[in-house]
Each structure stands twice: as C-alpha cells, then as structure tokens.
Design a protein around this nucleic acid. Structure first.
Lengths: 130, 130
DNA sequence: CGTTACAGTTACGTTAACGTCAAGTGCGCT
DNA sequence: AGCGCACTTGACGTTAACGTAACTGTAACG
C-alpha cells in the first residue's frame, strides 16, 4: 500500500512546498504529523489533507477556509449536532464553488473572444508585411 | 447609454468595495479615473476593468496577475511585437484557467461525495431517535 | 572524533492588499 | 461668513502566509 510515512523532505518533494510551509501548516493545525523523537512523520492522512490544501489555495481559499473544508472530509460521526453543522457548511461551500465554477466558464469564454480578436489583428499585420 | 461617469461613492456602492480600495487600484495602475479638479470620475472603461478585477480576485489571481490579464482586453493594436506577446500570454493564461476549471470540477465532485456520506450518517441518527 | 548534512525551534523580516486615522480642500446651503 | 459634507492626500497599522537567520541536536561518514 501507499501507507508508508514520509519525512519532511520527501513530503516537500512530493508536493512542491518548503519545510517551513509544512511546519506552518502543522502550527495552524492543518496537518498532524506524528513524531519519532523530534522528527516529523507525515502519514497517509496528512498527504490526503495536503492535497486538498494545495488545491484549495489555487481556488483562492484562505487557510482558514480550507481548515473548515478539511473538517468536512473527516466529519465527527459521534455527534449529531456537530455533524449537522458540518453538513450545512458543506452545502453552502458547495454552492459557492458551483457559482465560482460558472463564473469561470464566463471568464474563459470572454478571454477566448479577446484572444480571437488579437489573433485576427495579428493576421492583418502578417498580410500587411506581404 | 451607460456612459455616465461615477464618483467614488457611486463606484463603491456599485461594486461593493471601499474608497481606499479604488484609490489603491488607481495607484497600482489598474484603474484610470479622470479628474474634475481633484475629484475622481470613473468611466465606463473603469467599470469594465473593475468587473474583471473583482472576478479575477475570486479565482485567486493576484492584482499583478490581473493587471496583465487586463492588458489582454485592451491590446496595443499599433505594435505587432507587443501584440504577439499579449497573444502568447493570453493563450498561456487561458490554458491555466482551463486546468483550474477542471480541477474545480473534480473538487466539486469530491465534496459532493463527502456531503452525501454526511447526509447518510445524519439519516442514521434520525432513525435512531425514532 | 571532527565535520558534513539534515532536522528542529525561536524569533524577527517580508509582501500583498488593503484599513485607519489625521489634516487639509472644495462646494453647496443658510 | 460659517457650517457640514464628501473628497483629497499622506502616513502609519494590520493580517495572512510564509521567508530567513541564528542556533541547537543528532545520525552517519571517513
């Protein structure tokens, strides 16, 4: 399995981040590496979480936003009230993401139009230069 | 037409930003309001640009990223070389945005799965409570 | 056993994107 | 003329998300 733990260097290489970043995320309680003496060992769970963190960041979410999102992936199944809050939050977040997704479609379409215009102008230049 | 210019207050209300933000964007050369004496007047062009700025921010682009994107919407048609650079940039950016959109689709799908799981757990709780 | 190599902590530095506050200016009203 | 209000320009403050420097600990190597 992919159940081997990673040290900080391997983790950095795997995700393209710096050690400082991983320590920072641990301090912010986004990751929970175990310890062997003083050294950190990153588990399968940490890798899954870091994947979501990195992705979330590309969508413009803050680390605090992401921390809440992460909880939705490991809900507290023992507490109905807590679970319900998580559910509400997740629904709201999903709505936001779908809105954002739609806006992205629009933005892409618009940029493509501009790109076509530019291409046409360039074609004009090339014709003018024989 | 919608060709009336807006003062800073109207502009803020229209876009949900603060005066400080608009002045900041002007200092960063993202907006170019004209002046009547010392007062700023925001034109149709400024409104178009601010729309793109606000949207870009939601996608996690930095203001510097956005400044470059904005140039793609007002290419310098007088210079073939510059126009070509703009075209290259726009193509690259479009690629990034499409990648990002795809990742967003994945993220949405994954979150939806978690949401369903949570909903199932909640249903279990409700059944247990008679 | 010295040193190289990496990992750890503590603490201060940095950048982006504004917020906030002070002090001044122009304008319409009474 | 005086008042209030919206606008202006500095200038300093703030927060998030790390970077960087300085120092310490330790396992391994020749």
């Amino acid at each position: 399995m992919t159940d081997e733990t990673l040290n900080i260097r391997q983790m950095c290489d795997a995700f393209g981040v710096t050690p400082r970043t991983l320590r920072f995320y641990e301090a912010k309680e986004l990751l929970f590496p175990t310890r062997v003496g003083t050294r950190r060992l990153f588990t399968r769970r940490d890798r899954a979480r870091l994947t979501l963190i990195v992705r979330g960041k590309r969508f413009g979410f803050s680390l605090e936003d992401i921390r809440q999102l992460l909880d939705m992936y490991e809900p507290d199944g023992s507490n109905a009230a807590q679970l319900n809050r998580t559910f509400q939050l997740a629904e709201a977040r999903l709505g936001q993401m779908e809105t954002q997704r739609h806006e992205m479609d629009v933005a892409i379409a618009e940029l493509r139009v501009e790109l076509d215009k530019t291409a046409t102008m360039l074609a004009g230049f090339r014709r003018a230069a024989e």
